[in-house]
Design a protein around this nucleic acid. Structure first.
Lengths: 234, 234
DNA sequence: AAGTGGTCTAGACCACCGC
DNA sequence: CGGTGGTCTAGACCACTTC
């Protein structure tokens, strides 16, 4: 179950933990001897760590320990609870609404279903350390999840995965908006206050759309962080 | 100069362009015969396209054409002009300020230099199709760029690259704010309107910090889009 | 010139999917 | 079960950095 490159990557991660940023690690040829694997396996392990920002390589020179303390990784799709945990908050939720409805034009377009098709709508208030942080509206096609199957206490992603709809990727759009009265009241801020609106369309590995979510975050308690790299070629 | 896997990737991109989403492409073993290269080279080419979202693979089944039309790629670090071009706008700029100054606490922390160290500050109004879109404040350490070297007409990134400081990655924080009077006037919107604030710290390949930028976008004309993937393992 | 990472080959076996 | 992608080997040569 554990591949060789994974065990090599784990060893390299340990080795790296004891080194300062920009310190060189042993060459690939030395590592292949040390671990008794082929060079390609060593490269595979290094590539994985480079992808995470733990290491970086310089052609002709060597491979070095990365310099970043905090969120070095490429952005990952996470559930609300995972997101909060990584930020050091305790997540909780309050179900505001759970209805079966027909898709309106916006939802139909986002989910790639026909207008009027059946879907379920979940509205939740998301709390961090018991204080309101966001309001989330999720739509899931009826063909993916029936309302009777949904349990408000468990993770939606896990329930979808158990039904054979594992979420693999998502496209997100992040906007700034001024809060309307309704949302402002839910989030316990003044109307007109700025907020972050994150719209998401999630798909499985084959690109079939699974859910459409729109989350409105209090601007004073939430920001979006990501690392980006510059086009390497040319 | 052109590697084999790049030419294979280019051929696959052409082949893919004529196929509908989720259509299977030939197997790796067939492609290795067709192109006369090793299977690893085929895999390298496929991996590149998977990374871009053009293809996806399903273990044990095959490799398929991706489903996404629009922004399928992982987020890339782009200059303002590149960003605007990809959105179909024509970019222009207006220099609002160019000064040499001593780093304050915030800038010093962001750039990893000592407080009071020399840096240059560039403030620009960014326009899309000749209408105000954003106000951008950039700080660059004096050790990286001297004020006499800076030409307001050219691309800052190119000027930095020519000075041996090629930007490789950046960490960004995206927040929503209510605009203060000063920025609102520059952007030609009402005070208190919501705006997107993007703070960025850019580094070269070795992790040396090159610039700190803070860009404030009109919320009604700009949103941030990105594709994310879910953690594959566990 | 020596050492590094980057590309490439020609094989092999394993894990998974679909019939 | 056959076909697929995923991992792995033991070599080789190339491109780049460093001295």
């Amino acid at each position: 179950m554990a591949f060789k490159y994974e065990t090599v990557a784990a060893s390299l991660r340990d080795l790296t933990a004891g080194l300062p940023p920009h310190h060189a690690i042993p060459s690939e040829r030395e590592l292949q001897d040390r671990f008794g694997v082929s060079r390609l396996t060593v490269r595979h392990a290094i590539a994985k760590l480079v992808d995470e920002g733990v290491l970086y390589n310089v052609h002709g020179s060597g491979t070095y320990v990365g310099s970043n303390e905090i969120f070095s990784k490429a952005p990952k799709l996470t559930s609300f609870s995972e997101d909060m945990r990584s930020r050091g908050y305790e997540a909780s939720s309050q179900l505001l609404g759970l209805t079966r409805q027909r898709a309106d034009a916006e939802v139909a377009l986002a989910l790639g279903i026909s207008e009027g098709a059946e879907c379920i709508h979940i509205r939740r208030l998301r709390l961090a350390d018991a204080r309101p942080l966001a309001v989330e509206d999720v739509h899931v096609p009826g063909s993916v999840l029936q309302i009777e199957q949904f349990s408000p206490t468990g993770s939606l992603y896990e329930q979808l995965a158990q039904g054979g709809h594992e979420i693999f990727r998502a496209e997100q759009e992040i906007k700034a908006i001024n809060l309307e009265q309704e949302y402002a009241a839910l989030l316990d801020v003044a109307a007109g206050a700025a907020a972050l609106e994150v719209s998401r369309v999630s798909s499985d590995r084959r690109g079939r759309r699974i859910e459409h979510a729109r989350t409105i975050y209090r601007a004073d308690r939430y920001s979006f962080q990501l690392a980006v790299t510059r086009e390497a070629d040319k």
